[in-house]
Amino acid sequence: MASKQMLHMSQGQGETSYALNSSFQNAQKNRMKPLIEAATLDFCSSNNTSLPHTILIADLGCSSGPNALVLVSIAIEAIQSHYLKFQQPPPEVCVLLNDLPDNDFNMVVKSLIALRQSNKPVIVTGVVPGSFYERLFTSDSLHLVCSSNSLHWLSKVRVW
């Protein structure tokens, strides 16, 4: 099936790598930030009577390099702000980054280590290699899903 064709970014940190040639994608974070914050606050507000103690966030098509954590970091900041506003302890957050198996996951894991070592509340991280044309997560397991420049490849939304 053509939709499962394995397209991926140039790996590593070399001259032609995605890590060094992704300024356009990085610039998109300014456009995406208010959308992610609004979705995150909408989720938190809809659970206002009983804020969840654990929140799972996935980034589909996270890629690698400096942009790998941009979207989920925005969501984490919005979650923490919301909980502080209601004087609640921040939840545990699980961040799952997804991309195609040929992605440079060494770079992604290094990014995740930096996120886990930040002064944030408990953050558990993981990598989920695979195509989002296939099922990647269990039913009702995710609270927030982010994706920037990857979902434009879809011809229709698929719900399992």
Rank of each mutant, 00 (worst) to 15 (best):
S63M: 05
Q25W: 10
N67E: 05
M32I: 11
T125S: 15
P34N: 09
S139E: 12
L71T: 02
N67L: 04
A19W: 04
N106I: 07
K120P: 08
S147M: 07
V124D: 10
P129K: 07
P91Q: 01
N103C: 06
S45W: 04
L96H: 01
P34I: 07
N47T: 09
S22M: 05
P91E: 01
D140K: 14
L71D: 03
V128G: 01
P101I: 06
L56I: 07
N98Q: 11
L97R: 02
L7K: 06
L41C: 10
L112S: 01
C62L: 05
H8M: 08
S23E: 14
L69T: 15
L100W: 02
S45I: 05
Q87A: 12
S148Y: 08
M32T: 04
A114M: 09
T49E: 15
I36R: 02
P101K: 09
F137Y: 15
H143D: 14
L20F: 05
L60M: 10
L35F: 15
I57T: 03
L97F: 01
I113F: 07
A39R: 14
N21E: 11
E15M: 08
S3D: 11
H143E: 08
F43K: 04
T125L: 05
S50P: 00
Y18H: 12
S148A: 15
K85V: 04
F24Y: 14
S50Q: 12
P129F: 07
S17H: 06
G12H: 09
L112N: 03
L20I: 09
F24T: 10
T138S: 15
L20T: 12
M32W: 11
T16Q: 14
N103T: 04
L112A: 03
H143T: 07
S46V: 02
Q80H: 13
S148H: 04
C94G: 11
A39D: 04
Q117G: 10
F132Y: 14
F105K: 05
V109R: 05
D59I: 02
L71M: 11
S46P: 03
T125A: 11
V72I: 08
S81V: 05
N149T: 15
Y83Q: 00
C44I: 08
I123W: 03
V108Y: 02
L41T: 11
K110P: 02
M6A: 14
S111P: 02
Y18C: 08
K85R: 12
V128H: 05
E77R: 10
F86S: 04
I113R: 14
G61W: 00
H8S: 12
F137C: 06
